[in-house]
Nucleic acid binder design. Sequence first.
DNA 1: TAGATTGTTAATCGATTAACAATC
DNA 2: TAGATTGTTAATCGATTAACAATC
Lengths: 209, 209
Amino acid sequence: MEKKVSQAVIKRLPRYHAHLEELKAAGVMKISSKDLGNKMGLTASQVRQDFNCFGGFGQQGYGYRVSNLLDSIGSILKLDVAKTAVIIGVGNLGQAIMNNFSFVKAGFDLIAAFDSDKELIGREISGVRVYDVAELEDFCRRYSPDVGVLTLPKQFAHETAAKLCGCGIKGIWNFTNIDLHLEIDTVPVENVHFAESLMVLSYRLGENK
Amino acid sequence: MEKKVSQAVIKRLPRYHAHLEELKAAGVMKISSKDLGNKMGLTASQVRQDFNCFGGFGQQGYGYRVSNLLDSIGSILKLDVAKTAVIIGVGNLGQAIMNNFSFVKAGFDLIAAFDSDKELIGREISGVRVYDVAELEDFCRRYSPDVGVLTLPKQFAHETAAKLCGCGIKGIWNFTNIDLHLEIDTVPVENVHFAESLMVLSYRLGENK
DNA sequence: TAGATTGTTAATCGATTAACAATC
DNA sequence: TAGATTGTTAATCGATTAACAATC
């Protein structure tokens, strides 16, 4: 019966996590809300409010134990829960993600890739087998992956997302530059829209004139 | 002497732009704030407030002319201003972006790529020449690119960003999973942090239980 | 003209910041 | 104990929504 945590807070959690990992790697044992806020460009007050959405992780008069706090945030984000993912679309972007991105750090095991290109089907990329996209639904029904990663051409995004939802996918990580409208609104979609990001940068280039 | 427009509004502009492009492509001539809001999951009120940050684009009793509004938003985002970019790091991700991403749609001309890999230097990828990263500063001083795209390993991100700033770069599009702290705070940084996005998805997977 | 829909002001809601008692 | 810093409540600020007069 938790109170609803705002989107703004959730979106800051991964940043806290990254900064705390950095601190831990640097051998820092404790940190105050003031110092952490400084490092991240937030107020101490906000840092404390954020953490208190999930209960007190700190110690009055002392601060927060870095490795404690890191674990707590990781656990809120469910990074410690084993999850599986499949990727659909093994073009440049799909391969870039398969080769460079660490799914493991977020608790994900990438168990399969799908494409329609005969050249790719049957190959392995970073230890992940590429299957014919025609087998996607069979595979999903058999192995129930948690998340589908969409790195395919955008004209196929909607139908593929619908198929995944039909097979019980639990979330979609969308790299295509469209807004997905799913039938089932219990399936969360996270978007990585390069174009939007570059357009915001384009706008901001002019700001400091 | 414009009033300051909030970040929240700016971040919605590219979405308006994308939806309006879709409408235009579908041959829709006019749209009301109500219909556009519906399509995008916003209230009509918010749509009108957003547009009125920049002056009235609509016509009372009629609505907004799609192609008009599209152009106006494009112009606010400076998509119609010619800008140049260079990309630093021609690994999987860099190549994926060079091959698949349309810089042109945001008004950018990608004029050069840089890497340290001798195999890549001298090659052309999607019509863009790859130079030795040792030549980065020379190149920037000569050609004054507007934006630097960071797709290199994160351990080199800070020093490279600093060099770019030293050569007068106007903005940084950062794909490395670190928060950049620049000397010059007039240089905007836009981040595309895959890991943060996947972590938010990880969190949200559990929400609808 | 009547209907529709904007532009804009006012009301509400939510998120951030400030303040301070609790306590390590 | 005194100093530091949290947890938490109250105050402020900003963003969203509602309302409605203006007008096409």
